[in-house]
């Protein structure tokens, strides 16, 4: 439950007073809140946890982590709530 997935910020805007970004996780695009990483901008890589970017990481590290998480099969689990 404390996992965070790295993704790339494709664009940023403001919705309902919250700074959000469209973030890409190897093909899957999700909206993430960027208010906790004020320094992050388009093209940057961020670690995303429950819909919030919590830190900036560099590109190489992001891709490496991403591949590892994909191999572990936890990516979908983190990005989509399971259908129960």
């Amino acid at each position: 439950m404390c996992l965070a997935i790295p993704g790339k910020i494709l664009e940023t805007n403001v919705a309902d007073g919250v700074r959000v970004g469209r973030v890409e996780f190897g093909g899957i695009v999700r909206q993430a809140c960027l208010d906790l990483v004020p320094q992050a901008k388009t093209g940057d890589y961020v670690l995303v946890h429950v819909g919030f970017a919590i830190s900036c990481v560099d590109r190489q590290e992001a891709e490496r982590t991403y591949e590892a998480l994909k191999a572990m099969g936890v990516l979908e689990q983190e990005l989509e709530p399971p259908e129960i």
Binding site: M1, C2, A4, V18, C33, L36, H49, V50, F52, I54
Partner: peptide
């Protein structure tokens, strides 16, 4: 629920 990792998101 959650530890410090999740608390800021829930606070927001």
């Amino acid at each position: 629920v959650g530890f410090e990792t999740t608390a800021p998101a829930n606070a927001m």
